[in-house]
């Protein structure tokens, strides 16, 4: 379980997060949703120690993230942020191998190689494994980054907008893959999602953020409702039932 309590962050006098309490339950798929500028990425940054909060604290199970050794956290929690542009020319295989760094410090064992190969296969990157990242399309690159994070093989995985640059087929595949990591491999996954319907279809737990405040958190039945969504996004939303899937409609 990742627990954020009383987390506050201010940039240049502008409050981005105000006294946020969020729980990311263990062994579940949690989606973080909300409009632009709600503070989702900042929240993820703080939850994964990439950003230091002005107040409040974060624990991952028994680990206080501000006090724990960086390497120890890296073996327990992996994070991928948005907008990953690299100045480095690395091959896909090399990038994914670096996912094993917290475990092997660069001296990869047979086990490490097996995990790397599995992550590459999982994201269908085998045809590109020796290509440089700058020779890939945006979607392929995004999958390579996610493969790296999967190779890190941590209990907790935080992904900020993992569906960025992915087309419909790859988005659905990605969500199914993440779902199976939770169901079959007991991982805990948290995602920032732009599309509430992906959250509705795949998440166990949804956290809705607006203006740096948690508006609601709970199972999809409680969050994917016209009332909550209209309040979060400040636009009229209706929710349809499609074979038991709750689908938010807000296009007109």
């Amino acid at each position: 379980m990742i627990e954020l309590s009383g987390v506050t962050k201010t940039y240049d006098g502008q409050a981005v997060l105000t006294e946020v309490d969020v729980t990311i339950p263990r062994g579940r798929l949690t989606a973080l949703v909300g409009p632009n500028g709600a503070g989702k990425s900042t929240l993820f940054g703080i939850a994964s120690r990439l950003i230091v909060a002005d107040a409040g604290h974060v624990t991952v199970d028994d680990l206080d993230i501000a006090r724990a050794r960086n390497e120890e956290v890296a073996r327990r929690l992996a994070v991928l942020r948005q907008d990953n542009t690299l100045a480095a020319r690395l091959s896909v295989a090399d990038l994914v191998r670096f996912g094993r760094f917290p475990h092997s410090k660069g001296r990869l064992t047979a086990d490490d190689h097996r995990i790397v190969a599995a992550a590459i296969a999982e994201l269908e990157l085998e045809p590109f494994r020796d290509r440089f990242l700058d020779q890939l399309s945006g979607g392929q690159r995004q999958r390579a980054f996610i493969a790296m994070v999967l190779a890190q093989d941590t209990d907790y995985v935080l992904l900020d907008e993992p569906l960025n640059n992915l087309d419909l087929r790859h988005s659905v595949q990605m969500m199914r893959r993440l779902r199976s990591l939770v169901d079959d491999h007991a991982k805990t996954i948290a995602l920032v999602l732009h599309d509430v319907n992906f959250a509705s279809a795949h998440a166990d737990h949804i956290v809705a953020l607006r203006d740096g405040i948690v508006v609601a958190q709970g199972p999809p039945e409680q969050i994917i409702t016209p009332e909550v969504l209209s309040e979060v996004y400040e636009v009229d939303v209706s929710v349809l039932d499609h074979d038991g899937q709750r689908v938010a409609v807000y296009f007109r």
Binding site: S48, A74, R81, A88, P102
Partner: peptide, 10 residues
């Protein structure tokens, strides 16, 4: 790879 990647990898 940048500060975020480095921190993530410990």
């Amino acid at each position: 790879l940048g500060a975020d990647f480095a921190t993530n990898l410990g």
